[in-house]
Write a protein that binds this DNA or RNA. Structure first.
Length: 876
RNA sequence: GGGCGUGUAGCUCAGCGGUAGAGCGCCGCCCUUACAAGGCGGAUGUCGGCGGUUCGAAACCGUCCACGCCCA
């Protein structure tokens, strides 16, 4: 790794020329390429530094960078850049997942344009075609991550379909199979009739749709029962009607058979405790092959399951409805029933919750089918326990509840997909009904009648292995030994159930009970500037690349970081990005000022005795901020740390320290030399503190200031423990007097630049050493001959007398003073009231009482001062 | 239906038991030699409603109202 020492050619005899405005677009790309070339982001498994490992929840190979990625990556990049500066061997692992359904969809659409389907190509050629697509147009996000500045170890980039990761998949499948945690079973699954595959429960989105609720009379006369349904087409597959066992209305019918309309079939009436007697008529139709609840009722009562649709959700039952799509069939069947006089009631629209495919939004068709499953109970138990017993921490902690609710109530996970793109299930079937699961080092059985399962595995089956498969598992690699477990997983709370739970289950299982990460840091969703969800259809989605082009990557990153409160959604608007750009520009110009005035980082800091109170104040504050920022980082409080740095840099360093130092630099001499070193220190440390969040502008400025190689490999600042409360109090007085007099000047309508003769009486106050600076900041001239004070402002024990040449706006001044007097009197009344309350005096802690006493005496002093000033004003 | 969460300045949000804050926006003055992507000054809130606990409540408890999210 490169040594971060002074470059020989970077003497400070000549000040580097910086333009007056910062143009990010000119430098960002070049800086990033330099960082990568120099290998700053690579991680060495042989290093003796302590490891810090983060995996990116692998983005989808079909995707491109959106604000959600930009947000998450900003947080991860900030964490890892700081750790790298702190001397950790830092690995941020990049890569993508193969996104089975999404990718297959993309390539099938391409084929469709050529008038072909995947079946025209055949499986092998199709998969070949997908690889070709991936090579040409997949993985755009990798390039876009460079734009953002992500410090990832590119040489380690992985893809879930890589050879090594596929080995990992086969290995864990075999182990789980041998442990009887993977099994094959026929159940009702979520079927997408467009994607033509099963999907898992969490890939189904429920939304309220307008449907119809139709009440149908089954049977005849006294033995008829009315059932209500939103899915009339499934009645063709009904094999029972169910009622609650305690329901008096139907007790006499339980055990009898009634006729199922349109079919001529007779079906039993069964009693099942799961039927809600309060809902509708209290009787439900039972279609075991097309509804998960009905399937269970069917199991309990040994009912046949009659499938009435094919994989496209087209009716397969012979008769007038054969070949109709499920929606067409619904209308046709309702019409036929109506013609028979069997429709008792119709409610339309009937709003109810309907499942949709999260990939294509097609309505899910529950379907009875043979699939592969993971038995999650023992795995989920372990995943829950790891958090319960504190081996894994969730930030913010409130999110633990959601995690437990989820892992403690997990259903078995359907992992087989009827796709061609993905990891093919390593199970072979033999001619005599043999089933053989094949491990990665084994030869699959061959010969007459043997064939491999045609399904592939859920993409999450492979991305769940990501925290260790990327490190070479199942091989016992150096990287695995060095970098597992990961330090932290940073991801959105919406992903808790997707990747997080799976990574936890697989990590604990595969790595002998070692969880995949110590900490799960959850962030919110990016929203627009009004807090609305971003969506293409709503038209408020933003392409982060546009904002990066316009304002720079740093501006986007800083805006996102400033909004990042743990687990809370972050709104973002262009105005705010602009504000962040302005901050970067301010930083730029402040550093320019420092360079123009000879700020230096050479040599040790002067001893405190040699420094002015101003120097000691800013160093005291600087160290306080270092400590604050560290605490916020350790608690994943990105908004807080960004805000602390923003305010320290702008409100304290730029607005006050830099302004105060101007007087020092003008005067020259020893004090100026000391301040040059202090200013250099303050800017240097501030840039290093900001670097993890805004890497580009800080790199440019820091290298210009220090002449060193790169801030990426600079040391993270440490709190030197230097504090100077006296200096802080002294500068607070300076700020107070300057602000007071500025306010007076503004009220009096004086132009900011207008020089005013003044007499300052500062003797005996903390302000005495600061007369020059105060005069400079307030544009006060020395009192010349014929000085005549027309306004006298007592503040902080000092007196500032101004000669406004006899003209002062008495009305404006009286108005202001009256307002201040009112505030002071209210303060006096409030505090007097509290101090007159014996219960308060008896029960409130002493520091609080002391504080109230201090406020009272301040208020009284203010009242005396202001009253005197008002008395001294000429009559209007 | 079950669970979680949120209502604080025009907007977006911090604060979570001891003087109501920030960013952006707004008003006024200013191109003061680092910066107009800037400087200085200013205005703005019965902290959703009602009860309670407390010496003291934006904060804690109860309740109501209004939103939002997740799960079924």
């Amino acid at each position: 790794m490169t040594d971060n020492t002074q470059r020989p050619d970077s003497g400070h005899d000549s000040t580097p020329e910086l333009p007056t405005q910062y143009t990010p677009a000119e430098v960002e790309g070049e800086l990033y390429e330099r960082w990568v070339e120099r290998g700053y982001f690579e991680a060495d498994a042989k290093s003796d530094k302590p490891p810090y490992t983060v995996v990116i929840p692998p983005p989808n190979v079909t995707g491109s960078l959106h604000l959600g990625h930009a947000f998450e990556h900003t947080l991860i990049d900030a964490l890892t850049r700081r750790k790298r500066m702190q001397g950790f061997e830092t690995l941020w692992q990049p890569g993508m997942d193969h996104a089975g359904i999404a990718t297959q969809n993309v390539v099938e659409r391409e084929l469709a344009k050529e008038g072909k389907s995947r079946h025209d190509l055949g499986r092998e050629a199709f998969v070949e075609r997908v690889w070709q697509w991936k090579g040409e147009s997949g993985g755009q996000i990798s390039g876009q991550m460079r734009r953002l500045g992500d410090g990832v170890a590119w040489s380690r980039e992985r893809f879930t379909m890589d050879e090594g990761l596929s080995q990992a998949v086969q290995t864990i499948f075999k182990r789980l199979y041998d442990d009887e945690l993977i099994y094959r079973a026929e159940r009702i699954i979520n079927w997408c009739p467009r994607c033509l595959t099963a999907i898992s429960d969490i890939e189904v989105n429920y939304q309220d749709d307008d449907g119809e609720l139709v009440s149908i009379r089954y049977g005849e006369g006294d033995s008829s029962i009315v059932v209500a349904t939103t899915r009339a087409e499934t009645m063709l597959g009904d094999t029972a009607v169910a009622v609650h066992p305690d329901d008096e209305r139907y007790r006499h019918l339980v055990g009898t058979e009634i006729e199922l309309p349109l079919t001529g079939r007779r079906i039993p009436v069964v009693a099942d405790a799961h039927v809600d007697p309060e809902f509708g008529t209290g009787a439900v139709k039972v279609t075991p092959a097309h509804d998960p609840n009905d399937f269970e009722i069917g199991q309990r009562h040994d009912l046949p399951a009659i499938a009435v649709m094919d994989e496209h959700a087209v009716i397969t039952v012979h008769g007038p409805f054969l070949g109709l799509d499920r929606m067409e069939a619904r209308s046709a069947i309702v019409a036929a029933l109506r013609a028979e006089g069997r429709i008792v009631a119709e409610k339309r629209p009937y709003v109810h919750s309907v499942g949709h495919c999260s990939r294509c939004n097609t309505t899910i068709e529950p379907r009875l089918s043979m699939q592969w499953w993971v038995k999650v109970a023992p795995l989920a138990k372990a995943a829950g326990d790891a958090v319960r017993d504190g081996r894994v921490a969730i930030h913010p902690q409130e999110m633990e509840k959601r995690y437990f609710d989820w892992v403690d109530n997990l259903h078995d996970w359907c992992i087989s997909r009827q796709l061609w793109w993905g990891h093919r299930i390593p199970v072979w079937y033999g001619p005599a009904g043999e089933v053989v699961c094949v491990g990665p080092d084994e030869q699959p059985p061959s010969g007459e009648g043997w064939h491999q399962d045609t399904d592939v595995l859920d993409t999450w089956f492979s991305s769940g292995l990501w925290p260790f498969s990327t490190l070479g598992w199942p091989e016992q690699t150096e990287s695995l030994a060095k970098f597992y477990p990961n330090s932290v997983l940073v991801t959105g709370y919406d992903i808790l159930f997707f990747w997080v739970a799976r990574m936890m289950m697989f990590g604990l299982y595969a790595m002998d009970g070692t969880p995949p990460f110590h900490t799960i840091a959850l962030h919110g969703m990016v929203r627009d500037q009004f807090g609305k969800k971003m969506s293409k259809s709503f038209g408020n989605a933003v392409n982060p690349l546009d904002w990066m082009d316009k304002y720079g990557s740093d501006a986007l990153r800083f805006t996102l970081a400033r909004g990042a409160n743990p687990g809370v959604d972050v709104p973002i608007g262009e105005d705010w990005v602009q504000g962040s750009r302005n901050f970067a520009n301010k930083l730029w110009n402040a550093t320019r000022f420092a360079l123009m005035n000879g700020a230096t980082v050479q040599g040790p800091l002067p001893a405190p005795e040699r420094m002015s109170a101003t120097d000691r104040w800013i160093l005291s504050r600087l160290n306080t901020v270092v400590a604050e920022v560290d605490a916020y980082y350790d608690d994943y409080q990105f908004a807080k740390l960004s805000d602390a740095l923003f305010h320290f840099a702008w409100d304290e360093v730029f607005d006050w320290y830099v302004e105060l130092s101007k007087t020092t630099f003008q005067a020259g001499g020893e004090a100026a030399e000391v301040s040059k070193r202090v200013l250099g220190e303050v800017v240097d440390v501030t840039l290093r503190l900001l670097h993890p969040v805004i890497p580009f502008v800080t790199e440019t400025l820091w290298t210009a200031l220090t002449g060193r190689e790169s801030v990426v490999i600079a040391e993270w600042p440490q709190d030197s423990a230097f504090r100077d409360a006296a200096a802080e109090a002294e500068i607070a007085e300076v700020q107070r007097v300057v602000t007071e007099v500025r306010r007076f000047r503004s009220d009096q309508g004086l132009q900011p630049g207008q020089r005013v003769p003044a007499r300052l009486t500062l003797a005996g106050t903390l302000l005495a050493p600061h007369e020059d600076a105060i005069r400079q900041l307030l544009r006060l001239q020395p009192e010349g001959e014929g000085f005549h004070a027309t306004a006298t402002l007592p503040v902080a024990g000092a007196i500032v007398a101004l000669d406004l040449s006899g003209t002062i706006d008495v009305a404006a001044e009286r108005k202001r003073l009256t307002k201040d007097l009112g505030l002071a009197e209210k303060e006096k009344a409030d505090t007097t009231g509290k101090l007159g309350n014996e219960a308060f005096l008896a029960k409130a802690p002493e520091p609080v009482v002391a504080k109230i006493r201090a406020r009272l005496s301040t208020a009284e002093a203010d009242i005396a001062r202001i009253t005197a000033q008002l008395g001294a004003l000429p009559e209007a």
